[in-house]
């Protein structure tokens, strides 16, 4: 028997946590519990990102997703958490249809994932000797439009591998628009009188 490969153990732990809490989000009827399970599921996902060697994206997931987006979500939950909305039961018919459709989709996706032999996982010896390369700087350079990971590639292969400066700018402007739009939508209402008062 081979020695245990520890990253696999951590993959199993984080993967089980992510899947389990995602299921808990689905099955729970209490909206606040759902938010809590979602936090744990997404945090476990960031653990999977770290495990895949993508430290920057993992930290980003923790900072923006878990720390920002979900706090916002819980904020919304608390603003609307009246007694009758905290537990909203799903109709039994919805459950049955959802389970059938979801189960079919899940079996399809899983079968598809394992049907390609190149995706089943590398040889252990090949992975264990890989050097640990930080990827924060290449990501930053990529966002600035320079692909430091592709410098060695031949010119004809490099043609489609552009940097991400333009999408980065679009996303920045998009965020600004969203910021203003959300503030406008959620602003405090001034209840104007519908009828003109002389």
């Amino acid at each position: 028997m081979d020695a245990i490969y520890w990253p696999s153990v951590f993959f199993l732990i984080f993967g089980a946590l992510a899947c389990g809490f995602a299921l808990a989000v689905l099955l729970s009827a209490n909206i606040v519990r759902m938010a809590f399970y979602l936090v744990l599921s997404l945090a476990a996902t960031s653990g999977l990102f770290f495990l895949a060697g993508q430290e920057f994206v993992g930290a980003m997931q923790l900072l923006i997703y878990v720390g920002g987006t979900l706090v916002l979500l819980i904020f919304g939950v608390m603003l609307t958490s009246q007694e009758r909305f905290v537990n909203m039961k799903t109709l039994a018919g919805d459950w049955v249809i959802g389970m059938i459709a979801g189960g079919a989709l899940l079996s399809l996706l899983t079968a598809a994932a394992f049907s390609v032999p190149e995706w089943r996982g590398p040889e252990r010896a090949a992975v264990e000797n890989l050097p640990i390369e930080p990827n924060a700087t290449p990501i930053g350079m990529g966002l600035l439009g320079a692909r430091v990971d592709q410098i060695g590639a031949p010119a004809d292969e490099r043609a489609g591998m552009a940097g991400y400066l333009f999408p980065f700018e679009i996303v920045s402007v998009h965020l600004l628009v969203v910021l203003i739009g959300a503030a406008y939508l959620a602003r405090a209402k001034r209840r104007s009188n519908p009828l003109p008062t002389g």
């Binding site: 696999s8 992510a18 999977l48 996982g121």
Partner: peptide, 28 residues
């Protein structure tokens, strides 16, 4: 799974479970 490294397919399976849970959340 315990002795060999996880591959893309394993990550995709976890992703598929999360995706399906999310899609069913949206629906139900």
């Amino acid at each position: 799974l315990l002795t060999e490294p996880p591959g893309v397919a394993h990550y995709m399976t976890v992703g598929a479970v999360m995706f399906v849970c999310g899609a069913m959340c949206m629906a139900t």
